[in-house]
Design a protein around this nucleic acid. Sequence first.
DNA 1: CTAGGGTTAG
Length: 703
Amino acid sequence: MLFSVIRCRPFCTGAVLYANTQISRYARLGHVENARRVFDEMSDKSIISWNSIIAAYFQNKLPQEARSLFDRMPDRNMASWNGMISGYVKNGMTREARRIFDAMPERNVVSWTSMVRGYVQEGVIVEAESLFRQMPEKNVVSWTVMLGGLIQDHRIDDARRLFDGMPVKDVVTWTNMISGYCQGGHLAEARELFDVMPRRNVITWTTMISGYAQNLQVDIARKLFEVMPEKNEISWTAMLTGYTQSGRIKEAVEIFERMPEKSIISCNAMILGLGQSGNVTEARCVFDRMREKDDGTWSAMIKGYERNGLQLEALNMFPLMQRAGIKPNFPSLISVLSVCASLAILAHGRQIHATVVKSQFDLDVFVASALITMYVKCGDLVKARQVFDRCSPKDIVMWNSMITGYAQHGLGEEALQVFHEMCSLGMAADDVTFVGVLSACSYTGKVKEGLELFESMRLNYSVEPTAEHYACIVDLLGRAGHINEAMNLIEKMTIEADAVVWGALLGACRTHKNLELAEVAAKKLLLLEPKNAGPYILLSNIYASKGRWEDVVDLRKVMKARNISKSPGCSWIEVENKVHMFTGGDSVEHAEHGAIVGMLEKLSGLLRAAGYSPDGSFVLHDVDEEQKVHNLGYHSEKLAVAFGLLRVPEGMPIRVMKNLRVCGDCHSVMKLIAKITGREIILRDANRFHHFKGGLCSCRDYW
DNA sequence: CTAGGGTTAG
């Protein structure tokens, strides 16, 4: 007996130790079932084994499992109780953590610190501070956690006071303080600490480098990067994103190629950077070369496609992602929702909404805002409002989404009503809010109200006017026919007028046929946006209408030299969960082309009978000559609407999207089609929404 | 086995 005990003990202890290590390793890899199997097969479970398997469940986001094991374990030590607190905190369950904290027989500094950390994470800094004051003993970790809480709360001066009063500091404390200064853009203070601190490690260096990079001082970041004593993949990634965020993609790629080990995150950052700078093909190369991908990889790629106008590619990636075993989660849902929004594909959007509800992201303000924007862009304001009403508390982004949404649909009253409701609840309006309300006033012709709001924006809300606000007011005045007043406002602006402002003036000139100021605005736009084809064509049309043919020829030469061509007009419609694309003319034939043409002919008969004659004389619309010469009957939006008439069930609105501004002829045709067929047509063009109903359009023929 | 800092994400 004794013999076997002596022989067995060291062996068993070794096995237990080995098994505990196995449990932790499986937990790290996310294989919690394997961890559980090892645990179940252990004949000799120590407290540490129990603690390990509980930690494994928490790490893999299964707090209920962890709890049931905790309740069943035969013996507990301090680490068991503390593990429950930190486990709950990691899973965002501060109240459960607090219950354990209150129930445990005795507490040590770890218990207290974890609990303080829980409140910090929840953003309840007051509670964290109160607990911190009550702590019977504190060590450098507790102080540092509290410091982090103050920094997170943007109380940088309080943080510094705490920092200065700390009895002991270590490298983590210093790094935290530096990070706080960097986040607030106080680079000089950060650097001062960095230079005087006694010891720096790779994380400190990376914090400082990333601080410079995030604040667009990428060259200083690079200097530090070159002299740092050791680098890991995170430091390389910080440098990489510094370049991508400054738009310096070549240097970003250079860093990427030089980095010895490429983590998933660094590849994701590269994909994102390439996507942002328009190199979507290169982004796809990186994507394809990755052996392992995570949700960030997929959402980076999806976003890249979306930002570069390849929405269908973006959309197709979503099911591929799920087939690759990636659950739709926060960033990917946001990306796909914005794809649905930009494509305005309502049925897809609804499906994603269902996924959102299933994954319990629907109460998140970020996701809710994305949902609202999606429904707004799809033209379903009722649904947008439902999401808005259901989500509480609301943040400023949500209020802004709803206000802007109503404004974009020309529902000025509703937009202002939401705005007033927001103010009465004490939510502070910001610059985005005012872009929404001012454009709402503009769309609904509330000149007086708009000007008053513009005044009080600065005086009562202390929001400084940006170029966008000026653009709204220029639009407001211009729309009402006060074009010279609009021009005066531009001349008196305290900041530089940008493309949006001149674009607004141009829009007004277009409607009120003011060729002189249109020429001024278009010339400004050529300077500000040399790649945008619209103003060139418009200016060329103005010259042509005045017989200034030499100017026309010169302009065409400039366009050719700058390699500018107008993107072809295309429209699309979603029918039975499938997106159907149409391009102007008949370059690409739709499978049901015959039926569509038949429908168009039938319509044109009805239109003629209603007294319609085609109108090709919209000089001041930025429609290219070629497009004008083409049969007006074959503009892409007409094809899409014809298809909608064939396939969208009676009683449902026909929702069509177009990448360019709707042309004047199509606009009048749409009104007539809506009247003749009794169908509601919702057309989203590049700028705004048109709800056609019974011979009228919600934009009141101004767009 | 239990507590703190740096990289991607509207």
